[in-house]
Amino acid sequence: MDLDTVRTFVAAAEAGQFQEAAADLAVTQQAVSKRVAALERTLGVRLFTRTPRGTKLTIDGQAFLPHARELLRVAERAVASVRAGSRPLRVDVLASRSAGSGLMRGFHRAHPDVDLDVVMLFDVDTAVAAIRSGTIDASFRAVAMPGRPLPEDVESAWVIDEALQLLTGPAHALADARSVPLARLAGHRIWMPGLAPGTEWTAYYDDLVAEFGLTIEATGPNFGSDALLDTVADTPALATFMGDRTRLVWPAGHGLRRVPVTDPVPVYPHSLLWHRDNPHPALATLRAHLAATAAGRRAAGTWVPAWARAGDGRGPVQPS
């Protein structure tokens, strides 16, 4: 059904005259007559009858009018859903408890007027494809992976480093330590069942293992953070890594400890990705917010993989 004919029908019904409807629509009266006639042929009914004072809706016209108005409202909502500045800003944060999620909560507090859609995609390849297709506007990722450069139309900028902490149960040998040097973790079993081959976070931990001789186990199914916390709390021989910006709540009886890792501090680099031609005005607002609130530069005494050192750490995301 041609929406122009529906729009013309509604204008004529509200004006009561084809001539007045034509003036409202900035078309000729002949164009109004042709559009109404086309709609009547599509529907197979008469919508108007002529009167000395103009036009009058038939019974079928009266029945169709509320549906015609709803069609136009639906069409307007459909256009608004993809019009830059009218639709929400769609941002991928990887996980609800991640640093990216925390950064977006801070953005929302600072800019409550910006409509947001927060999504959680799996890996950087999925996020990049969504950025290029326009499904999302931005994504928080660690992106400078070896041998996998970003497409030329996708921009990235470092946002912040997240320090890793060792999460242990109360009976673990390091549970009471105020901090632990990274080299001292060699020989301890670190359990991370969420490491999936080909993902950016697995590439990060592979380099961490290779450089410091750590033992990271990714065995067993990944039942989520609750199951991970239960197992670490009950198993003195196991620990796991947790970002210092990761928000978790566990039962008081678990007695879990978060131990800072030092000398050097392993940090996970978070970057913002976006399409260079994305016109959404709220994207510029987000970039300006991150530039004003995120860490200025990578701190001394920290560690990231060589590929992250090459691509990140030169400064925060810049506003448009």
Rank of each mutant, 00 (worst) to 15 (best):
L182Y: 03
R105Q: 13
I59C: 05
H172A: 10
F107C: 03
Q62K: 05
A12W: 03
V124G: 04
V261S: 05
R189I: 11
A138L: 03
V79H: 09
R97K: 11
T42G: 05
D137Y: 00
D277S: 14
L283T: 06
L195H: 05
R87L: 10
A37M: 14
L167V: 11
L208Q: 02
R184Q: 13
P88D: 07
T51I: 13
P316C: 09
E40R: 03
T49M: 13
R83F: 08
R287H: 07
V249F: 12
S133M: 08
R109A: 14
Y204A: 02
R77N: 10
L286V: 01
S179A: 13
L286C: 00
A138C: 12
V180Y: 04
R189P: 09
L57E: 05
A68T: 09
L290M: 11
W191D: 01
R314T: 14
L164P: 01
D207Q: 14
G169K: 02
N278H: 06
Q165F: 11
A210G: 12
R297Q: 15
V91R: 00
A15E: 13
R276Y: 06
V180Q: 01
P221Q: 14
A144Q: 05
F140W: 09
S179N: 13
A26E: 11
V209L: 04
A99N: 02
S320D: 07
T55P: 00
A144R: 03
K34Q: 14
V209Y: 02
G213V: 07
R87P: 01
D60T: 05
R50H: 15
Y268D: 07
Q17W: 07
V91M: 03
P260R: 01
I160S: 00
L290T: 01
T240E: 04
A294H: 01
P266V: 01
D4S: 12
V114D: 03
V6Y: 02
A282R: 00
L208R: 03
L283C: 04
V79P: 02
A75E: 12
R297S: 15
P146N: 01
L238M: 12
L71N: 06
T231C: 12
S271H: 06
T262K: 04
R258C: 06
E20G: 09
V82M: 02
A22L: 07
P197G: 05
A130K: 00
T219E: 15
A13G: 05
A37Q: 13
F212N: 13
P170C: 09
V265L: 08
R53N: 10
A110F: 06
H275T: 04
V180G: 03
P269R: 04
S98A: 11
R297N: 10
T231A: 13
S320P: 07
T42R: 15
